[in-house]
Amino acid sequence: MSLLEIHNLQVTFGGLDALSSLDFSIEEGEIVSVIGPNGAGKTTFFNTISGMIPPTSGEIIFNGESVLGLDPNQITEMGIARTFQNVRLFPNMTVLENVMVSQHCRTSQLVVGALFQTKAFKQEEREIRERSEEILSFFGTRLIGYRLDQPAFALSYANRRRLEIARAMATQPRLLLLDEPVAGMNPIETAELTGLISRLRDEWGFTIVVIEHDMKVVRDVSDRVVVLDHGVPIAQGAYDEVSTNPDVIEAYLGRPVEAKS
């Protein structure tokens, strides 16, 4: 059984088919890239899986259960986490708080524990904090130390992208959806993050779908590539197959396919 199965998915915005007749599945432990020209419907694909946009028709099955009609928080609780293309951190919360708050669905203490400072409450707080620091140290020294207590808006652009990933990791997902994780990063930072994406699977055991425009990253990380154009999947397969597919080249017309080498 695949971890995520999508059948005949269709999303329509007032007459415009952002996605249509999309079939997709991903196995546990895979890294799949979704590529396509601007406006192809990639972000819409993520929005639909994470429950922010209800599909017009079709079926999304995660781990054997349908996620249609569930609230975003319920879907996250089932084990799907995502990042946003247009970084959407909690800007006035600190780096640490951003990660701590994202463990909400894996923790349970409410009013009574906090008021009486019960043992269970203190234990849970300590665990939340430790796990947050562990997650943040995945990114080297960039998000720890004095940065822990800095508000998220004060971070550099690349660090904000890293914090987005950290926050998604904190929800303890099985499936991680990354929306253009290296957009706006310089080549060195990009290379570093490419390595981290592979480690996310190997060390943390996440299954990963990544939307990316940078073909070098796509080539380096993905087991499989899916190409969307105008909401329709036009090609699927290994990077080498897809990058030479004439349909794909046509879809990118006017934009040479980078990293052909």
């Binding site: 922010m52 609230d71 975003p72 996250t76 986490a81 909690f90 800007p91 909400h104």
Partner: peptide, 14 residues
Amino acid sequence: REDESVAEVMGINT
């Protein structure tokens, strides 16, 4: 308070 939709996606039962 910061961003309700994102909070929901991050697993908070708003």
